[in-house]
Every structure is written in structure tokens, then in C-alpha cells.
């Protein structure tokens, strides 16, 4: 009986260890279940990040904007959301691989809400692991 429990304990512990290791070594961060910390209009996000260096990178945010371009540069599916008319900056959204089917119907000029992991800003705002929340 004790031997049986010992074996069961090892199995349970082994499964738990495998779960912990697989979480640690997960290759892609799926953000679909994470609620965005903040929601922005594309123009406002660009303006905000241009004026402050104090922002929460590595947080999930939602951005509403108009599609400027959909491209596959570097074999990555990327959507560029444009800011205000006077801004020459974009939101670069590196799309999650599970979004491929949704992207086929996206065109320049579409209005989208995209959720993604905010990384920061160079000339453009950079977001990774992006998913389309809403398209119009």
C-alpha cells in the first residue's frame, strides 16, 4: 500500500515538475486570456510614448486604429496601424501565429482593435504577440 502511494506521489510530482518546466520554457506568450491593462487610440498611444519615457513596457494593452499596411517582412505577419493624419509614426503589431486566418481578410483602411504586448517605441510603437480583438 505504502509502495503504491510512493509510486503515485512520484507520478504526481513528475507531472507537476513537467508542468512547471513547460511553463518556463514556453516558446510563445499567448496573451489571449490576459485582459489589457490600458486601452488607447493609436494616435494617443504614439503621442503618449513620444512625450514620456515612463511607461509600462511588457504590459498587455489594446489599441484601436486604422490599418496602414499588412506585410510579411522577415516572414512575420505584421499590421501597421496609423496614428493621426499629422503623425508619421505607426504602431507596428507583430501578429501571433494563431492569427493567420483572421489576417487574410484585413485590408488597408480597416478599423481594428488589436491587443498585444507593449515593448516600447523607437520611431514607431512596437507591440509583439498581437491578436485581433475586433475588426470593422
Amino acid at each position: 500500500m505504502i509502495r503504491h502511494f510512493s509510486f503515485l506521489y512520484r507520478i504526481v510530482f513528475g507531472c507537476f515538475a513537467l508542468f512547471v518546466i513547460s511553463c518556463k520554457y514556453a516558446t510563445n506568450q499567448d496573451i489571449s486570456a490576459i485582459a489589457p491593462k490600458m486601452s488607447y487610440d493609436a494616435g494617443n498611444l504614439i503621442a503618449t510614448l513620444q512625450t514620456t519615457k515612463e511607461y509600462d513596457s511588457e504590459t498587455v494593452i489594446a489599441v484601436t486604429g486604422i490599418v496602414h499596411e499588412v506585410n510579411t517582412i522577415n516572414n512575420r505577419v505584421t499590421i501597421l496601424l496609423k496614428g493621426n493624419d499629422e503623425q508619421e509614426n505607426y504602431i507596428i503589431c507583430d501578429m501571433d501565429s494563431n492569427q493567420t486566418h483572421k489576417i487574410k481578410t484585413i485590408q488597408k483602411g480597416d478599423s481594428l482593435v488589436i491587443k498585444g504586448l507593449l515593448k516600447g517605441m523607437l520611431k514607431d510603437v512596437i507591440m509583439l504577440n498581437c491578436i485581433i480583438v475586433k475588426s470593422e
Binding site: K24, Y25, A26, T27, S57, E58, G120, L122, I126, L128
Partner: peptide, 13 residues
């Protein structure tokens, strides 16, 4: 210019 936190790795660790 590049953001260092925008590098994608095979493993999260």
C-alpha cells in the same frame, strides 16, 4: 536602433 526587449527567443527562460 533596436529595443533589447523585442528579441524573440526559442525559450521563454
Amino acid at each position: 536602433r533596436m529595443l533589447m526587449n523585442a528579441f524573440i527567443f526559442e525559450k521563454a527562460l
